[in-house]
Design a protein around this nucleic acid. Structure first.
Lengths: 341, 341
DNA sequence: CTGAAAGCGCTAACAC
DNA sequence: GTGTTAGCGCTTTCAG
């Protein structure tokens, strides 16, 4: 079986000093308290024997596992991998590993997986939650576990969160459409039990109001999932409602793609007849025709931001962290929007 | 800080028995050796106190962390998330968590990350390697660490691997093109330091030979990366070589998409003028026009297969495992192939 | 059937 | 400066 691992004891025996001395000599900060010559000898022996510290054992003692938990709805959703790389880019160099779990936006699964993470003694959690309410995570935070949420604010809690500026994104998009002469603008909203769906719908109403664009309730239809099929279905509903519109602002890219497809099937051209817009700017969008006009959100950056906040929390600098981090978004005008007919 | 966790000791005190008794009562297999009534009392106390076992401590003792390492090139590559979900689908229900690391196909990073995983005491590793040679992983396997590779066979080793039937895929595709009347078929090969790139090129030569299709060296061009830009560049090279061809078989979907784009820019229509095929059947392909004819590989299934093999290895059933697992692939004919002109 | 005790590998008081 | 000792929470002999 597994070749016996070298432990502190082995290298203590080898160098004729005590394990604790070895431990100190190998600890970059404690090292200073040890005679330089001894440190050198120990270091040499450690290298020679191929010593690798056992983090498990250290963790048991220090109560720090150097592991963080990352909860996301579904890794298969293309917007999450970049976020994960962003997180990794700050945490990994510091020696942290992350355990990623997929909640499938399922409440029970989420609760169970949170327990899994706690059982494993993670030092903190980044929760790319989308569910609008999850008492378990607040409880965990209250118990003293460092938690940061991504994309969503947990109400009535002191949990720091990083979000994208959905409001600004929707507003910029509406302004863009308005400039193109659109004033009858439909909205395909996302699922209202997901934070992004709800936030973007609220932002739509607010922005329309600000820009003096009339919001017709019949021109707002809500998807049950963030996917192409639902985008198509919603567009069909919109069409059959009979109220005219010249543009449809969708709560995310996939809904928009589905909507465009549904238009095409009916011989309606996007953007000539109807403009369609997305949100997120997911990968591969520029391969799909017409190239979608959308709002680019920071993905890698959001991961980095969340990781940095978590680091502060884990290092007890909890006072210095700002509760809210809002990342700027960017309007990306491509081919799916054109002047209103 | 963190609310004090309930330990075995707490529930021992509560029930008036010894910790070891509690430990046994809570272990599904050892439980049988304990009086039913006592088990019930302990269970009740555990539930009441909200006991959650500390896996770290258990791991230190048992030398099993119930954690596996998963090495992939880059989570951002859409073919990996489904693989990860496949792995998770078999491992997670059994109580395993996985630590995923991105190697970026970088040799040094790979070595370093392997050490990271070993330091964390993973019980086994699934290595979705693409680099053609990596001595470190063989060393790890030799040291007794259970290892399975995905997509690639490590030569001269006893490491079990699961691969897709690249040969069959390429062959079916060539036959499909042949049936459409193509006999001057180009190949845009993938990077030759990545296993898939190399395997598929070899398969191309072999299949062409089997089907009596002449292989013209000028019609084989090798990409340096698996992306659209390289696909476009390779197609340009092909075009400027002056040798006529009516179809181009690409080593993966992204190369194919880039190739189609490059054709379009020159006013050459796919599939009317030239047929183009991909490999992998990555997500979102059906949103891109023309819909790509490709070879569907099992992604989720590959993850599951690898996880199952790893399980056997970790449970010392090493004798029962087959060294090689070849998963079937499937030809998916869509719109990017048409009869040769 | 249950208790006692040792120990996994490491760190952190406390001595010397 | 370095050694001693205790103990993190759990499992696992070995007694009883």
């Amino acid at each position: 079986m597994q070749k016996k691992r070298i432990t502190l004891k082995d290298i203590a025996r080898e160098t004729g000093v005590h394990v604790s001395t070895v431990s100190r000599a190998l600890d970059p900060v404690e090292r200073r308290t040890i005679t330089e010559e001894v440190v050198k000898r120990i270091q040499a022996a450690a290298d020679a024997l191929g010593y690798r510290p056992n983090r498990i054992a250290a963790g048991l003692r220090t109560n720090r596992t150097m592991t963080v938990g990352v909860m996301i709805p579904d890794i298969t959703n293309v917007i999450f991998p970049p976020i994960l790389r962003g997180i990794e880019s700050v945490l990994e160099p510091l020696g942290y590993a992350s355990i990623i779990v997929n909640t499938d936006s399922d409440r029970d699964r989420e609760i169970r997986l949170l327990d899994v993470l706690r059982d494993r003694g993670v030092d903190g959690i980044i929760h790319a939650a989308v569910l609008r309410s999850d008492p378990s995570i607040s409880q965990a935070a209250q118990d003293g576990l460092p938690v940061v949420t991504l994309n969503r604010k947990v109400e009535f809690s002191e949990i720091p969160y990083v979000i994208n500026d959905e409001d600004a994104g929707i507003c910029q998009m509406l302004r863009h459409l308005q400039k193109l002469g659109h004033n009858r603008i439909a909205h395909i909203a996302g699922p209202q039990d997901l934070s992004t769906g709800q936030l973007r719908l609220a932002a739509f109403r607010r922005a329309a109001d600000d820009l003096s664009i009339a919001v017709e309730e019949a021109l707002i239809v809500t998807a049950t999932r963030f996917d192409e099929v639902e985008g198509g279905r919603c567009l069909t509903t919109l069409l059959s409602a009979g109220k005219p519109f010249t543009a449809v602002l969708c709560a995310n890219d996939r809904l928009a793609l589905g909507a465009i497809e549904a238009l095409r099937e009916r011989g309606i051209d996007c953007p000539r007849d109807i403009s369609v817009t997305g949100f997120n700017d997911m990968p591969f969008l520029d391969l799909i025709r017409p190239k979608l006009t959308t709002v680019r959100i920071q993905q890698h950056g959001a991961g980095r931001a969340a990781a940095n906040i978590l680091l502060q929390l884990m290092n007890d600098n909890a006072d210095g962290v700002s509760l809210e981090t809002v990342l700027p978004v960017e309007l990306v005008v491509r081919e799916s929007t054109a002047p209103a007919r």
